[in-house]
Design a protein around this nucleic acid. Structure first.
Length: 560
RNA sequence: CGGGGAGUGGCGCAGUCUGGUAGCGCACCCGGCUGGGGGCCGGGCGGUCGCAGGUUCAAAUCCUGUCUCCCCGACCA
């Protein structure tokens, strides 16, 4: 039981001047977190209670799938990071110790855990294995933002699975998937599990857990039976009415019309009747021309995955020299490979002519230029997947599960001997969960004009008891007794027994957002009933004084 | 990394253009009233105006440098 009069809960009437995100404003106002520097936050007692309740849910679910909790350091020697090839990551904090040795601050723990497994595990008999810990992660983010949603230092639960083969990894991954589904359900979040990019580090499959909210930095593409990060999403475009074909491409004078918008306006055609050219330079230095429909956009992550190598956008000088005047480039006659997005239906299009102030109309892919079909465009709202219309929602990534494969085990020599004495690399998976983001996402998803409305399972306290009686009064005696009884009934109590006005108490209680607020005052005695407010929806209830604590506990158990 | 903005008491702000020795609301402390939605009255405490240098009789204000923070974008293994 916690007495509010002595609790360190510094609330504010006004949000920080520079805060934008709801969770940023409310978590600071409610006294849950305080900023130390850019992307660096302290968790104050009430905020840390939320964090710890989330951690405990995660711990229970990890243990339930056989995870073994451990702890690895944040400060590492640089050497394993050099071996894995991640030392060059810009976001990795690098420093030297007093002897001048290179050190890093861990952004995750693949290198270290794999190193332990490499030395400790020799036999197939020791597999499978799931190890995990809750530990601080350090990332030199280019731009921390939105309170605790994107920080440079944060606690993460990261787990690592070790299996003898692909099938074993699939099984460990599936266990995590089920555990993660339960974790987010238990935390009371709205969430999606979406297909995700495996990133530059390879890997053989990944999903992200996304909590939809306004402050989300990611876009997720959703349709019946389909959910993917927009970085990898694939869908069928809405059809576009194309003009009739021509026997051959025909030049059109288009003075100064360097943009799709200018061409569509001047020629009176829909943007989808154009093909837009996106020239790139791949790692070997070769220029390639990526073409998408005029109303579509190239998705650089999908393009990178399709290419299987790095690339950069071609500079205007490159384009002018090797193709044509920027703003008027097109595929016809281009002396370079052409990648045509698969969203381009057969038909006649308008493209740049590779000459100043002119376009071509009646250009037909295949007839007028050779191409390789690729899927590189960003999905748009209204596209369809298997006939179902997609919508796009902003969301915050709260967890991810990732099939690493053997990338780290090979780099760090983590192998085992099978039954016939043959050595194989261990198949690994890694699985992240961010409690701070879960807390912030819950704030984002359920806040109203009065403040936070926590899901029951992760609230800092189960019940905030507001007494309006001064010490020595009958109503105060009643509230003191009720507080004891509710505590005894198993509820975590925050007892507001401060000598301040009722309005302030109610306002602060709703700001902090415990699922139930119980009020005891003079009126309570007269009515013979105790007033209970359900924070979600701010709905008022009342329960008889007799048996009140059990009735309130029962009410609490039925909350979301 | 590119663009934009901001540093004045615990919080939110005014004052800066046009230089003259710092102010408002809230919070806090004391006293009183009030007591079911951030209540009222009276009296107080608290700030080397981010930092450093310069100009000037005089700098929160002008100049130079520097640090920090926020927002948009890029990036995000």
């Amino acid at each position: 039981m916690t007495l509010l009069s002595t609790y360190f809960l510094p609330t504010e009437r006004e949000p920080p001047a520079d805060a934008e995100a709801i969770s940023h404003k409310l978590m600071v106002r409610a006294g849950l977190v305080r900023q130390v520097g850019s992307g660096l936050w302290s968790w104050l007692p009430a905020g840390w209670r939320v964090h710890q309740r989330i951690v405990e849910i995660v711990r229970e679910e990890m243990n339930a799938i056989g995870g073994q909790e451990m702890l690895m350091p944040v400060l590492h020697p640089a050497e394993p990071w050099r071996r894995s090839g991640r030392y060059s990551i810009e976001e990795l904090f690098k420093l030297k110790d007093r002897r001048g040795a290179d050190m890093v601050l861990a952004m995750t723990h693949e290198e270290i855990v794999t190193g332990h497994v490499a030395t400790a595990i020799q036999s197939y008999r020791d597999l499978p294995l799931i190890l995990y810990h809750f530990q601080v992660k350090e990332r030199d983010e280019a731009r921390p933002r939105a309170g605790v949603l994107r920080t440079r230092e944060f606690v993460m639960k990261d787990s690592y699975s070790f299996d003898r083969d692909r099938a074993g990894l699939d099984a460990s991954y599936e266990r995590h998937r089920a555990a993660y589904d339960r974790m987010f359900d238990r935390c009371g979040l709205e969430w999606y599990r979406v297909e995700a990019d495996v990133g530059m580090m390879g890997g053989v499959g990944a999903h992200e857990y996304m909590a939809p909210c306004a402050a989300g930095e990611n876009d997720v593409v959703l349709a019946a039976g389909y959910a993917a990060n927009i970085e990898v999403a694939s869908a069928d475009p809405q059809p576009v009415a194309l003009p009739a074909g021509l026997p051959a491409p025909e030049s059109v004078h288009t003075p100064g019309m360097r943009t799709v918008e200018a061409v569509t306006r001047e020629l009176g055609v829909p943007a989808g009747a154009l093909l837009k050219a996106f020239p790139i330079i791949v790692e070997g230095g070769e220029m390639k021309l990526v073409m998408v429909r005029g109303d579509h956009r190239v998705n650089e992550i999908k393009l990178g995955n399709a290419l299987g190598e790095g690339f950069r956008a071609a500079l205007p000088d490159d384009v002018a020299e090797r193709l044509g005047p920027p703003g008027f480039i097109g595929p016809v006659g281009a002396q370079m490979p052409i990648l045509l997005d698969q969203g381009v239906a057969p038909g006649a299009y308008i493209t740049g002519a590779n000459q100043s102030d002119s376009h071509l109309r009646g250009v037909e892919p295949g007839r007028d230029f050779e191409y390789e079909a690729v899927d590189v465009r960003s999905v748009l709202e209204g596209d369809t997947v298997a006939g179902a219309t997609v919508r796009i929602e902003a969301a915050i990534e709260v967890g991810n599960i990732f099939k690493l494969g053997t990338r780290y085990s090979e780099a760090l020599d983590a192998s085992y001997l099978d039954e016939s004495g043959v050595s194989h690399p261990i198949w690994m998976g890694s699985y992240g969960f961010g409690p701070a983001r879960v807390a912030a996402a819950a704030v984002e998803q359920y806040a109203d004009e009065k403040g936070i409305s926590w899901p029951r399972t992760i609230a800092p306290f189960d019940v905030e008891l507001v007494t309006l009686g001064k010490p020595g009064t009958e109503e105060r005696a009643l509230s003191d007794r009720l507080n004891e009884e509710l505590q005894a009934a198993g509820l975590e109590m925050l007892y507001d027994e401060r000598d301040i006005g009722p309005g302030e108490k109610f306002a602060e209680a709703e700001l902090l957002g415990c699922p139930l607020r119980v009020t005891v005052g003079r009126r309570t005695l007269g009515a013979g009933e105790i007033e209970v407010q359900v924070r979600r929806g701010r709905e008022g209830r009342s329960v008889p004084i007799d048996g009140a604590s059990e009735a309130i506990a029962e009410l609490w158990r039925g909350l979301p």
